[in-house]
Amino acid sequence: MENDGKEGLILIRIQKNRKEHWKKICLEKQISLTNLIIDSVENRMMDNERKKVLAFIEKQDNIFVKIETNINQIAKMVNGQKFISENELQKFSNQLTEIAKLKAQQNEVFINIYSMLGK
């Protein structure tokens, strides 16, 4: 929505116990009551959920960096020895296939997350 610099005020009447319940939710989620209402009405991701998602993405990225480092170490070892056993090659190949599958799944999840973040 376009912001023309003016803020509007909406007054609503709710039961006192409902208001207290909403405030409790806000305290748990560490968000304001205004954000809770706006994000709920506009069907957007809450700020605290967005922070969790971004932390998850960063953690996933770190995991794959570690895996890629391990792959590079194995490749360096094989290049130095100029040999890898058939069994080790098969295990390594299986691991690479599994990583490719996981990376594809992760990318699908990230696409969904980014679309949710954009709302």
Rank of each mutant, 00 (worst) to 15 (best):
Q106V: 07
I74G: 01
I113D: 09
R13L: 00
E88A: 11
K59P: 02
K119A: 11
D4R: 02
L33F: 07
K19T: 05
S93D: 15
N72K: 03
I84Y: 00
N3W: 09
L11W: 09
R18F: 13
E58C: 02
K103W: 10
V78C: 05
K66C: 09
K19A: 09
D4S: 06
K6H: 03
F83P: 00
I10P: 00
D39R: 12
L33A: 01
I14A: 05
K16W: 09
I63T: 12
M1W: 08
I12M: 02
R13K: 09
L33Y: 06
N112E: 00
K24Y: 13
S85R: 00
L11D: 12
E20F: 06
I31S: 01
Q60R: 06
L89V: 07
I12W: 02
M1V: 12
K101S: 14
Q90G: 06
W22V: 05
D47K: 04
I71H: 00
L102M: 14
F56N: 06
G5W: 03
E7A: 11
Y114R: 08
G118C: 10
M45P: 02
S85Q: 05
Q15F: 11
V53I: 14
A55H: 07
K91M: 11
M45C: 05
N112W: 02
N70R: 04
E98Q: 06
K6Q: 10
V109F: 09
K19D: 10
A55D: 12
